[in-house]
Write a protein that binds this DNA or RNA. Structure first.
Lengths: 223, 223
DNA sequence: ATACGTTAAGTGATAATGTCACTTAAAACG
DNA sequence: CGTTTTAAGTGACATTATCACTTAACGTAT
């Protein structure tokens, strides 16, 4: 079966769970396809499934009253939605919103099955814990970035990670602002500065990197 | 036994684990007392125990290169150190530092015992997951606060939570800045403004609230 | 009790970022 | 082709951060 191989590849820790442990995730879970732009969960939502993303990407954001947003993280191929899981268990209000950024293929494991696996399979537990730990650590990095790192550096980093000299980045300044937790105007001005220095070329909905090295020199050596 | 009752009170989800499940946490764990000001873990440290805090408090901070710090969260009585746990499992570098804020009494459960409990006790799993979820959600709130909330409001909130009209807050402006992820000078100026309005009275190492209601009016109604 | 070193807090200038109230321009669509 | 929508630009101003200090309060040793 094709899907099984894909899953095993994406979730190496699940090998045991699918194989020798006698629990077969595929039998007890459901494939879901979710179109782009769907709000997968809102603040305060309850979650009834443990979700594994097979393909596509989900962004998790919080919003302030004044409408400003910040992307907390993305869940991509091979990732699981730890926050929905934790929201299921914890009594606190779920403080974020998940939106698909592309068509998404996911595997939904119902809560009781999830709990059974947690008890029976060491491999499954490891997988779940690994996701949790990663998320926690990434969130801490986000806090660090937001409170310490300067915007030009964060912006340069984003550009370098998401584009290169021949692959332009297709996004709006607003989306970039949300991604970095800043304001559109600030991003626009910063990009304009980069453009004036000849490092990027801007057009509506598109950013082309024209001088990779100059942008890279902005980053601290540890990146 | 006194300690057992204390633990059961602090970690209600552990009831089952200590009682009927046949695993006795007290037998397989070790009490530790840690003096105030001890660095419990550094960035990159490995952790060999799952830690439950019985009494006292640990603060978890990150530091920027320029020396600025921010408190990520505090672990107090009844809390567990999820980050050390996750650091044990995840391959990523541990991105924070833990420092005891007072003398701390903790219960250290060695890794193998921890893993055994995770397999055998549903209650223990719940406890662990609950801690994780709470931490994740609190970190998200922190991101929200840092990126959206104005400093005067965050400061007022802190003052109201940590002091009252007859119980002054004993802390330095520097510590406050770290707590809120700001700079000392900014905190000093903001506090001075509060003082000019007659809301607080400042002296070295001490902040007295003189007008609780005025401070409270600064906060959004949802708090 | 006074002097001295240490730590906490204050200050002014300047830079970086965020906010507001718009305007201008590009694309999308009938 | 003209009209909506959506994206991006702009100037003025507010807030927060940074730097390079100064001043004040406290602890300690004589």
């Amino acid at each position: 079966m094709e899907l099984k191989n894909t899953i095993l590849q994406l979730f190496p820790k699940l090998n045991e769970a699918i194989g020798t442990d006698g629990v077969n995730i595929l039998e007890h879970s459901q494939q879901m396809t979710i179109p782009e732009g769907t709000v997968v969960f809102h603040q305060g939502d309850q979650c009834l499934n443990y979700l594994l993303i097979i393909s596509g990407s989900v962004k998790v954001i919080t919003r302030a009253e004044n409408g400003r947003e910040i992307v907390l993280y993305h869940i991509t191929s091979g990732g699981s939605c730890v926050l929905t899981t934790s929201c299921l268990i914890s009594s606190e209000d779920y403080p974020a919103e998940g939106v698909t950024e592309s068509d998404v293929l996911a595997l939904a494991i119902p809560k009781p099955v999830f709990e059974q696996y947690m008890g029976e399979s060491r491999a499954f537990r490891k997988q779940v814990f690994h996701s949790y730990g990663d998320r926690l650590i990434k969130l801490i990095s986000l806090v660090e970035d937001i409170s310490f790192a300067k915007l030009d550096i964060r912006l340069a980093k984003f550009l370098l990670v998401n584009g290169s000299v021949n692959t332009p980045i297709r996004t709006t300044h607003q989306a970039l602002a949300t991604e970095l937790g800043s304001a559109r105007e600030v991003i626009s001005r910063q990009l304009k500065e980069f453009e004036n220095k000849g490092w990027v070329q801007l057009s509506r909905g598109k950013i082309e990197i024209t001088n990779h090295d100059a942008l890279a020199r902005l980053l601290p050596s540890t990146n």
